[in-house]
Nucleic acid binder design. Structure first.
Lengths: 200, 200
DNA sequence: GTCTATATCCCGATAGAC
DNA sequence: GTCTATCGGGATATAGAC
């Protein structure tokens, strides 16, 4: 007989975000619904609407949580490596690792994220990561092209990893992350080729 | 008063794929349902099940159509450029362009594609593209690393483009595609850095 | 802030007639 | 091969009581 506990703990808002994360990590975004999260917590399906205007607002909160999680994992790497090129490679490595260790959360950011313009708190949570990234790039190249190339490459490795291109073994994450780090260094090395030729 | 035309034209299967493509292009995969496609075509919601076992099978057919479309757009590029490095760059450019001009179809391949192992026809449609890509890489490097780097980079530029990182102007597609082509050439140039050092 | 109850809507899929 | 009709399920969101 299931314990049909009332909800006493006083922070349903945070508990809902936790549960949404769980659901998404277990079976992907498609498995998430406000109703299902409510059932898991043993509250009425209407209870969440006292804390979130609608489903999208809860998903946006999950996205904020995700960016904060990545930021926390990235921070020690930034402390460890001070050289710009090494930092960029470390960021790319951490990005791919995060994608591999939090697959569904990472995917959610690109599959199901509600319109960012309507949820500025998501953009705000992304900001510090972007700042660390851009400042490392800026120390190496004044133009945007290197930033775009590195960002694209890291993201691409992450997607390939999730797509199974690196196999399903335990070291797939590691190999993908190292590949992204090396590709980043290769792009830095040939960064002059990235700049649009003058007068073309 | 809506014309409540019966369906006479005899190829409901193909018409369903067309309509699914339309729906996805208009409002994303979330807007697609077998029921909605049926309504658009003026047939009963049960009619599609005479041609597709279930919803996923129809989506798989859309994926096949998408790969064929990309293949058709890629072919003239491959005829035009014969040098391996130039070919790789041309493939990357075409890939990003395709993503930009068929946004929702492209996204669908990664957001909503049903399990590939259960739909071998999708993998088969992807095969020729993969072959052209791998043969160009192989002429430049015997190892897998360059292939992964170029693939990741092209895919990453495509995702950045769809994410709005290149702006919303008319030339965003062009700039993203050129960026991907140049990054590809940069990776080719520094390809030695991609290889895992021996004995590490 | 949470509950019960409900309105409203949509979907996938099947059965059986034509 | 298509239609009518329907089953069974699940979702979002609101109203009003406590």
């Amino acid at each position: 007989m299931a314990e049909r506990r009332r909800y006493h703990h006083g922070d349903l808002r945070a508990a809902l975000i936790d549960t949404a994360v769980e659901l998404i990590e277990e079976h992907g975004v498609r498995a998430f619904s406000v109703a299902e999260a409510s059932r898991r917590l043993g509250v009425a399906v209407s209870a969440p609407y006292a804390h979130f205007a609608d489903r999208d607002e809860l998903l946006a909160a999950v996205a904020v949580r995700t960016y904060e999680l990545f930021r926390a994992e990235l921070a020690p790497e930034l402390d460890r490596v001070r050289q710009p090129a090494g930092r960029l490679a470390a960021i790319a490595r951490a990005y791919v690792r995060f994608a591999g260790t939090h697959r569904a959360l990472f995917s959610m950011l690109f599959e199901a994220l509600p319109d960012k313009t309507r949820h500025p708190e998501v953009a705000a949570a992304e900001q510090p990561i972007d700042d660390a990234f851009r400042s490392s790039v800026h120390a190496l190249s004044g133009s945007d092209e290197l930033a775009q190339a590195v960002e694209a490459t890291a993201h691409g490795y992450a997607m390939l990893l999730l797509d199974g291109a690196f196999g399903e073994h335990g070291d797939a994450i590691q190999r993908a992350a190292e590949g992204a780090a090396r590709a980043t260094l290769a792009l830095v090395e040939s960064r002059d080729l990235l700049i649009r030729p003058i007068g073309r």
